[in-house]
Write a protein that binds this DNA or RNA. Structure first.
Length: 257
DNA sequence: CTGGGGATGGGGCCC
DNA sequence: GGGGCCCCATCCCCA
């Protein structure tokens, strides 16, 4: 299954990102998207400059700070002035630099009797300090980590490197000299060039077929297997591809059983 | 309609 | 931090 634990999925996990969806209404539309729609003009590599992404703290309805958001965190206030802006959010990370005792007293002043310690991130209250600290480490730390948002879509990443890699899917810096088609990564371009050259370096050990792409060879190898990799949980029929299993399930197998 | 091949995309891991 | 590679997934097309 997806190993993309670093990315916060906004799309259906079972569907690859479709950038045409950026033009359709979504639950949340980044103001940066609104600035670029309907046809975003995507600049070339300079997008990797600090203005290319928007490092923000992820605020949700559950972890909104008690005080009003700083103006520079407002979604409509534009880009942060610099990368260092994110450092001001560090104190939202529970384990790295917990709120001072004074902060906690301030929070607790608003609580009812028996609930003396309130989480500064999600406002949950606890009767003991240790209970509060445990809550912060288990539930709020992850949400309070810095995130890096894509300028061109609403995806967010926990690392700058992951964001840069993603941005390439918008800028498509690798261009085929033969047909002009652009790709996000060099190895994708290499695979594409094989469609021009006819090179098929991946050979099936069971038959004479060869493939230009390793993944396609892997899918082909499934056809040689009596028991395919993807099995229907209802009728136990196996399929060589996930898509075939999905088709099978959607065709009514689950209803029939 | 089903199964398979071709092409492509994306995130993670390793160096 | 970046490049290369891996694995997974998907779409399109065709037999």
């Amino acid at each position: 299954m997806p190993r993309s634990f670093l990315v916060k999925k906004h799309f259906n996990a079972a569907k690859k990102p479709n950038y045409s969806e950026l033009e359709s209404p979504t639950v949340f539309i980044s103001p940066y998207i609104l600035k670029t729609l309907p046809v975003p003009v995507i600049p070339q590599p300079e997008v990797l400059s600090p203005l290319a992404y928007n490092p923000i703290t992820v605020w949700t309805t559950s972890n909104l700070p008690l005080s009003p958001l700083p103006s520079d965190l407002s979604p409509i206030s534009g880009y942060p002035s610099s990368l260092s802006d994110t450092s001001s959010n560090k104190d939202h990370s529970g384990s790295e630099s917990p709120r001072s005792d004074e902060d906690e007293r301030i929070q607790s002043s608003k609580l009812s009797d028996g609930e003396k310690f309130q989480c500064s991130l999600c406002s949950k209250s606890y009767s003991t300090y240790s209970g509060l600290m445990k809550h912060k480490q288990l539930h709020c730390e992850a949400q309070s980590r810095k995130s890096f948002s894509c300028k061109y879509c609403e995806k967010e990443y926990v690392s700058l490197g992951a964001l840069k890699m993603h941005i390439r899917t918008h800028t498509l810096p690798c261009v085929c000299k033969m047909c002009g088609k652009a790709f996000s990564r060099p190895w994708l371009l290499q695979g594409h060039i094989r469609t021009h050259t006819g090179e098929k370096p991946f050979s099936c050990p069971h038959c004479s077929r060869a493939f230009a792409d390793r993944s396609n060879l892997r899918a082909h190898l499934q056809t040689h297997s009596d028991v395919k990799k993807y099995q229907c949980k209802n009728c136990s029929k196996t399929f060589s591809r996930m898509s075939l299993l999905h088709k099978h399930e959607e065709s009514g197998c689950c209803i029939a059983h």
